[in-house]
């Protein structure tokens, strides 16, 4: 990293539940060709927070230990998730297991309502968030851009909101930029993370230009032909988008506005 970017980065940290991080990219750890490539992608992305799915790899008797140890050895902060959970009870149980395994109160809360869209069940989500925050968890809820749901999640004790860009793994980008912009405007001081649906770096840059605090993604990197290169591309895009947002972009206009003065030009008759 050169001096200029590192200065910018240190001047602009983001905070989740009191933990400050410099990187605004949160990276998922599933579906990589190998743990070695996963480790290299995380390094290339400079991500400081990675999500880990417990449900898939748990089995019985903690038999997923060696994979989790690989993750812990990377020296990044782990945000365990409840991926694939469909009921409040499943999600709460998984969260409790995660807290014990990774020794962290953080939990990315997913309560999935339907298999084809993997759309959050927002009713179950709010209920699970209430239970978990009461129990001392710091919840990162995977939600939609619905403002009322967002409000109820905040009332439940969530201090971060993670609306989807598009369905998980779809790579479609920001399906509802209006909804996301409106959410940003409604909750100007809540850390907002676009989670899911991001396919290419420009999608992540667009989320950051809307003023989002960070982007969480997995498939777009894991399933790229070269995951390491793609991880770096996303890191650059997110930094570009963030800097663009902070630089206060110009307004759009309907008509052209010449960038050089037209008055006083020589008149060739």
């Amino acid at each position: 990293m050169d001096a200029m970017t590192s200065t910018t980065a240190t001047a602009d940290p983001v905070e989740f539940y009191g933990t400050r991080v410099t990187s605004r990219l949160l990276l998922g750890t599933a579906q990589y060709p190998s743990p070695a490539i996963l480790a290299e992608a995380i390094r290339a992305s400079a991500a400081e927070i990675v999500t880990v799915s417990l449900r898939r790899e748990s089995g019985v008797a903690r038999s997923g230990q060696s994979f989790w140890q690989l993750i812990r050895d990377l020296g990044v902060k782990v945000l365990p998730n409840t991926a694939g959970c469909k009921t409040v009870k499943e999600a709460v149980t998984t969260a409790e297991m995660a807290r014990e395994l990774f020794d962290t109160p953080w939990i990315k809360l997913e309560v999935i309502g339907e298999d084809d869209t993997l759309q959050p069940d927002v009713f179950g989500l709010v209920e699970a968030a209430k239970i978990l925050t009461r129990d001392g968890f710091q919840v990162f809820p995977y939600t939609t851009e619905d403002l009322i749901v967002a409000d109820k999640l905040l009332s439940a004790g969530c201090e971060v909101l993670m609306p989807w860009g598009a369905p998980i793994g779809s790579g479609r980008g920001l399906n509802n930029p209006y909804g996301l912009r409106s959410m940003r405007a409604h909750f100007p001081r809540v850390p907002l993370v676009v989670d899911a649906g991001v396919g290419v770096p420009s999608h992540a840059a667009a989320a950051m230009e809307l003023g989002y605090d960070a982007v969480l993604l997995n498939t777009a990197v894991a399933k790229a032909g070269d995951p390491v290169k793609m991880a770096r591309a996303f890191a650059l895009a997110i930094e570009a988008g963030r800097e663009g947002f902070r630089a206060d972009p110009m307004e759009t206009r309907d008509m052209a506005a010449p960038s050089t003065p037209v008055m006083g030009q020589a008149h060739f008759g």
Binding site: E57, G59, V60, S63, S66, F67
Partner: peptide, 11 residues
């Protein structure tokens, strides 16, 4: 293909 090392149990 699951990242764990338990033998025998099919879910």
């Amino acid at each position: 293909s699951v990242e764990n090392d338990e033998r025998g149990r099919v879910t």
